[in-house]
Design a protein around this nucleic acid. Structure first.
Length: 274
DNA sequence: ACGTAGTCCTGACGGC
DNA sequence: TGCCGTCAGGACTACG
């Protein structure tokens, strides 16, 4: 699924296109992404409301509506929006279409893992993806001291596991976890609590820099991800380790290795990352 | 309180 | 060509 940089890109695109625009109605083809399975309830909660703003919270995208409801999208692996999809181009796996003053916004989800929750705005933090949300590493709240503090609250995790813990740091997923550790020259096997101060500082700046660069380049596309306007990101051209199994390390003469940790792939350079 | 496996799905790819 | 196993930007649940 999209990670923080992709979700941020999508949220900005959607907000710039749809802020203060009215949703007229909703056409549902498959309602399984919705938490509430009653189509009438879903339609009543959304139809004829103005979109006040669209923003990112962690890996979720929040549509705040004028009628005091909010829609919380979590795209998981393959959820995406298509702005202005024309009927004749309707993509396979289009789950529903929002009909707005500025045309149709389709929600497409090949694997159907995405979730859509409609909830009163004042009860937003009761959503399961928002209630235990960690620090957002793109905000000022993410200070070095805070970083040290959350590291000390994860004494038994490896560096890779730690970066993926959404209740500690929110937004990093499998691609950026590998890229961040490579930039910081830290092995994915290292226990996070064993990092020295210089290593912790390097990891801290790598988290910030990798995410900032990826946002700048509008995210990473390796198969399905598209931004709000159905365009690919650019960060895939900058990947140093993710999906680079057996390729030469860009820094030393070693080869990039693919390993499994907690059931998920990690890519790293054995030589550079200690 | 851990780690691990299973789960929701579709599609792409490699091996035979 | 096709069939089969494996894997994929995620994260919850169940089990030991």
């Amino acid at each position: 699924m999209p990670e923080l940089p992709e979700v941020e890109t999508i949220s900005r695109d959607l907000n710039s296109y749809l802020k203060n625009i009215k949703i007229n109605s909703l056409i549902i083809f498959d309602n399984r992404n919705f938490k509430v399975k009653d189509d009438k309830i879903i339609k009543d909660a959304i139809s004829n409301s103005i979109i006040s703003r669209i923003y990112r919270a962690g890996k979720s995208i929040i549509w705040e509506l004028s009628n005091s409801n909010s829609i919380i999208f979590h795209l998981r692996m393959t959820g995406k929006f298509i702005i202005n999809q024309q009927n004749q181009d309707k993509e396979k796996h289009t789950m529903f279409v929002l009909s707005t003053e500025k045309g149709q916004i389709a929600f497409v989800d090949i694997r159907k893992f995405a979730t859509v929750d409609i909830i009163e705005t004042k009860k937003l933090n009761t959503n399961k993806y928002l209630q235990n949300i960690g620090i957002d590493p793109t905000t000022e709240e993410f200070s070095y001291n805070t970083f040290e503090k959350i590291i000390s609250s994860s004494p038994k995790k490896t560096s890779k596991q730690f970066l993926l813990e959404q209740n500690k740091l929110v937004g990093i997923g499998n691609i950026y976890a590998s890229e961040i550790l490579f930039k910081a020259k830290i092995s994915p096997y290292r226990l996070i609590k064993t990092l020295s101060k210089p290593e912790t500082l390097l990891l801290y700046s790598s988290v910030k820099n990798i995410l900032a660069d990826a946002i700048q380049l509008r995210g990473t596309t390796f198969s399905d991800y598209r931004d709000g306007f159905n365009k690919k990101g650019e960060f895939q051209n900058k990947l140093k380790v993710y999906n680079q199994n057996n390729k030469n390390c860009s820094y030393c003469e070693g080869k990039i290795k693919k390993i499994k940790q907690n059931g998920r792939s990690t890519y790293y350079c054995q030589n550079c990352q200690k």
